[in-house]
């Protein structure tokens, strides 16, 4: 029954099934209700697994579950790598 789906944010399979039971069946809503995919890997590990679980639990095709909008940057980057020395005001 229970297993970790999102390692970054500690979201379990049970958390996903509870969200579905509450009526949240698309991946964008489930991301926001459970925290899924909001950690350092930004869903690269957990979202495909979650889609499978949601599809099975709701009887939807995985395409109907959808995919979270990928957000830049691709990998976490330090603010100092982005900051200008001279601050424009």
């Amino acid at each position: 029954m229970t297993g970790i789906v999102c390692r970054c944010m500690d979201v379990t399979k049970e958390d996903l099934l509870n969200a579905i039971e509450e009526g949240y069946t698309d991946i964008e809503s489930i991301k926001r209700v459970t925290g899924l995919g909001r950690g350092p890997c930004q869903g690269k590990t957990c979202v495909p697994i979650a889609i499978g679980i949601i599809a099975r639990a709701t009887g939807k095709h995985p395409d109907e579950v959808g995919y979270i909008t990928p957000r830049p940057p691709t990998k976490p980057i330090f603010l100092e790598q982005l900051a200008d020395e001279e601050v424009k005001e």
């Binding site: 350092p40 930004q42 976490p76 980057i77 603010l79 900051a83």
Partner: peptide, 21 residues
Amino acid sequence: FASVAVRYIPVMKKLKVLRQW
């Protein structure tokens, strides 16, 4: 954002951005 944020709080240089929207 990074330029102004690290100007106010220099230790934020070592902070990583996860996502933007």
